[in-house]
Write a protein that binds this DNA or RNA. Structure first.
Ligand code: FES
Ligand code: FES
Lengths: 144, 144
DNA sequence: ATTAAATAGGATATATTTATCCGATATAAA
DNA sequence: TTTATATCGGATAAATATATCCTATTTAAT
């Protein structure tokens, strides 16, 4: 469904959101430990998220990654997925036709589109804040 | 969403269903032309579908691939996806946790599960026959 | 200024997926 | 029995995704 990079990106963003809500910046090392991911690879993904303005980075000693407190409730999963996997999950044809087009549909177009739209709605309506709250309360987990 | 192999497998199965309904066997060459896929790679996928009893093969001259006419309305997309991509699309965690478990859910478990179940229902209720009919009528397309 | 700690980013390595090639085997027809 | 035509299956190649390594740059604290 999502690439590994995207999975790491989502989990990392949630952890950064939690830390930022507590006023703490975090390093790729801490993030990788917390979400059980390869550190250097995770660092690359964080760079991409910075470039797409999902998270902020602060260089130098006492630096790290963070998210503006006020942004945590505004950032949607869709932004993260889009930053890393692009929009093929929303717009791509389920059977790999070059473009998904109502006027030239593949055999599963209608049925696939329905599922795909549900996924899109889910990603566009889910905020980092609610996911972070669930982790904090112990209702969900980032690893194992 | 699906692997390339799975996309080819679905499209190939639809084309074989159409041909078989007309009493004709088809070769990997014909299939690859019809669905715009690499021939040798497609042949591998056909072998997997034969092993999983989705399609039949007949070796030797005048041989090829076919589907029992009576089976065309019984074969569901889910069988094809399962034969090629396995069941991770139905059972795997959206964020890559080792197992998707109600008692140890990832942050998106509930929302993801809903989408995943819709996809599963779609795949389990869609028959090769209905997809083949849509192609025959010109309502949908297998390539470009 | 110097040092320590952190991100940025290029180069490289590994694993997986996708794709190609070729010879072995099976089978229908002549 | 011979020939032509298929699938089968192993070996290999190419492309992409995943992962690691190392150096440069930035910055806070001393
Ligand atoms: S054309 Fe295939 S999903 Fe729209
Ligand atoms: S645990 Fe992640 S989807 Fe169920």
């Amino acid at each position: 469904m999502f690439s590994k990079a995207c999975e790491y990106g989502i989990k990392a963003s949630i952890f950064i959101a939690i830390s930022s809500s507590e006023g703490k910046r975090v390093t790729p090392k801490q993030i990788a430990e917390e979400i059980n991911s390869p550190q250097a690879f995770t660092a690359k993904i964080l760079q991409a998220l910075v470039k797409h303005n999902v998270i902020n980075s602060v260089k130098g000693a006492y630096g790290g990654f963070e998210i503006e407190k006020n942004d945590i409730s505004k950032i949607k999963l869709a932004q993260i997925v889009n930053a890393i996997d692009g929009d093929k999950i929303y717009r791509g044809c389920g059977l790999g036709l070059e473009i998904c087009d109502e006027n030239h549909p593949c055999p599963v177009h209608d049925k696939f589109k329905s599922v795909r739209t549900d996924l899109q709605n889910m990603l566009e309506s889910t905020t980092l804040e609610e996911l972070a709250i669930n982790i904090k309360s112990g209702a969900s987990f980032l690893k194992v």
